[in-house]
Design a protein around this nucleic acid. Sequence first.
RNA 1: CGGGGCGUAGCGCAGCCUGGUAGCGCGACUGGUUUGGGACCAGUAGGUCGUCGGUUCGAAUCCGGCCGCCCCGACCA
Length: 438
Amino acid sequence: MRLSRYFLPTLKENPAEAQIVSHRLMLRAGLIRQQTAGIYSWLPLGHRVLSNIARIVREEQDAAGCQELLMPTLQPAELWKESGRYDDYGKEMLRIIDRHERELLYGPTNEEMVTDIFRASVRSYRDLPMTLYHIQWKFRDEVRPRFGVMRGREFLMKDAYSFDLDAAGARRSYNRMFVAYLRTFARLGLKAIPMRADSGPIGGDLSHEFVILAETGESQVFVHRELVERDILGEALDYESDLQPIVDSWTTLYAATDEKHDPIAFGALADGDRLEARGIEVGHIFHFGTTYSKPMDVSVQGPDGKPVHPEMGSYGIGVSRLVGAIIEASHDEAGIIWPESVAPFRVGLINLKPGDAAADALAGEIYAALREAGTEVLYDDRDERAGVKFADMDLIGLPWQVIVGPRGAKEGRAEIKRRRGGERHELDKAAILERLLA
RNA sequence: CGGGGCGUAGCGCAGCCUGGUAGCGCGACUGGUUUGGGACCAGUAGGUCGUCGGUUCGAAUCCGGCCGCCCCGACCA
């Protein structure tokens, strides 16, 4: 993509409404624009990031055996009256009346709807276990939206719902999702720590929040250092196997948000193992048993011919929130530093002097070669001063920069710079391509 | 929902107290000079001063209603 033709409205100054760093950078880097309180448009660059995150979430859900579907944003109120939540949910639920005076609502979550879909078509225990998910916009009419996309009213969320025959099956589904979440956040370049959360009406230990570590996080967290150092992606994984040992290995080490913090237990850890940090919640998994399957009268026929209410769980990831959360966890004074997996482009190619024959030729060749190799590259071919291009490129945070100047170009050389850390090398074209395409 | 703040050009702000017909920086556009870290000179365009009403000869400015946005708290993926 040529930057001269790309819609990338960057801002030199901080918009007054943005207080936290991710919000400021998202506005300045041309990722989003606010439409009204807590509701944002995603500009091309931001949309690419959002799509990349959704793609990774989807890949890991599929790998864990979940099936994607897509439920609507608008839901009939009847479903929520069935479960009893229509009155319970309060003003956070956006209620809508259509032309026929039918009551609708903009879904804040989809337990009722997925349960309705399930009960309409699933009859036998043989169809279980089943986990369905979708990635869809949700709306919660927060009294006070803030922090940009981290706490918007409209937000993109992955929500999954598991159906199992019994509690043991539900635990297996829960464990699969637990591990899938660890992998998902790791692939997004984040350190995510599962933390015990309030358990549901059933009690038990099947509720965890996934909190990523970021210096500017909103809440204080206390964790065993080993949890931060583990590399889940480097571990072999078979979703068909018993995952309980893996889950246990994560849940037995100390990890708590400040509400759940137990200073005595934490204090008992060795000095070097105690880690206090700031965190942002980006996911929540939750077993809730038959909370919906009973009142909504869902059952499948069991092996003995008798009806069974399925055990259910739900599992959320805040996809749009993650864009902000990743920035909170990965930025510097100059701007965003995208992890490679979610970067809107992998390479930013700067031609310092468009119009210079040697620079144009070399930059053009590198651009073509990268594109041919399938690498996403944003080519800054604008007629701007060097400083502007450097500043913009640092701001938008692409992982690699290739800088072609007239002097080096004459000798066939350009500079390659890693955004994270700023390390740079002047190399010839072949060496640059080799580094980027290795 | 309680408390506080703010709405003036695309962005950041001054002007308001003490009414007299709107200004600065950045950005945009044109021309020229520049050219490896947000250049310089000259020129141009761009504002129903959130909105409705009141006071006044005259309102961005004073008074009132409404709308919107931000911050702190309570609440939350």
